[in-house]
Design a protein around this nucleic acid. Structure first.
Ligand SMILES: [Mn+2]
Ligand SMILES: [Mn+2]
Ligand SMILES: [Zn+2]
Ligand SMILES: [Zn+2]
Lengths: 143, 143
DNA sequence: CCATCAATTGAAATTGGTTTTCAATTTAAC
DNA sequence: GTTAAATTGAAAACCAATTTCAATTGATGG
């Protein structure tokens, strides 16, 4: 079984929650599909194969994923909350195309290090951060 | 008259819009008060001296400020849109305390430069960006 | 000054994404 | 199996943001 599935089951058990058919289905689709999906995105994908699943269940399950640590919440300013699977990969930030909506991930240790330094200069203890760069992707620029 | 007030009047005239008592009052309060205010924050402050002013007017006027370039829209993830006056100061980013809500501004040319580099590496043209660091401020840490 | 007309205003209604409620159902443990 | 607690889906509620609309106000220019 996938590492993430295992992690979720342990989380449920630890919290006195139950493993259900719906949660399995939602997790499978969440792990398989594209990243940066909104609740609605995922709900619509799920409905195709599982007409019975309710929006509220998808919403609640994604919330559990983030509490469990297998999903991260993103907010790119389009009014939709998005979730992405936390893979074994490191933390990363995003370039977001204002034209086509493409999301490019990047990671720059030098920027991370400078953030630490800035925080330190202000006696500030970092819990999390987000860096989002908006603009136009290569594809959209030369079209 | 303040530079920003002048700038707003010229904007209104250019757009065929009118200068009104309400817009003057809202601009005065916006320029005087704290920064990073939500529409509701500003609305409540205004009501104390000007009971007649409507929420919709505050909302619409703040939108005009941002179109005019004298205000910038901020979204720190608490579900409220905030506005801050664009002073002559440079662009800056934010440290946000999760405990007390304090907002500390900073500016680091080295980070900005690295962002440019990242974008360049991806053939991406930057329009804007935001860097927000969440955590605990010095004051909250030693309390 | 006054007439005119488009812009503005405030209250109330609407929107859209999120979150909660609740009765029926399902799950895990005994 | 029985039982108690957790879960589910539909519908309602929530809430900030946005729009609607009838009444009012500002700018223009006769
Ligand atoms: Mn990502
Ligand atoms: Mn600021
Ligand atoms: Zn693009
Ligand atoms: Zn603090």
């Amino acid at each position: 079984m996938g590492e993430k599935k295992q992690q979720f089951r342990e989380f449920l058990s630890r919290q006195g929650l139950k493993s259900t058919r719906q949660r399995e289905i939602i997790l499978d689709e969440f792990l398989r599909g594209d990243s940066h999906l909104s609740t609605e995105d995922l709900y619509l994908k799920l409905r195709k194969k599982n007409p019975g699943i309710g929006y509220a269940t998808v919403y609640r399950t994604l919330k559990l994923f983030s509490e469990c640590g297998i999903a991260e919440v993103r907010n790119f300013g389009d009014g939709q909350t998005r979730y992405e699977s936390t893979t074994c990969e490191e933390h990363h930030d995003h370039l977001i195309c204002k034209a086509c909506g493409a999301i490019i991930e990047f990671e720059d240790p030098r920027i991370e290090e400078l953030q630490e330094q800035v925080a330190k200069d202000h006696g500030f203890a970092i819990v999390s951060h987000r860096l989002e760069i908006f603009g136009h992707c290569a594809k959209c620029l030369y079209k």
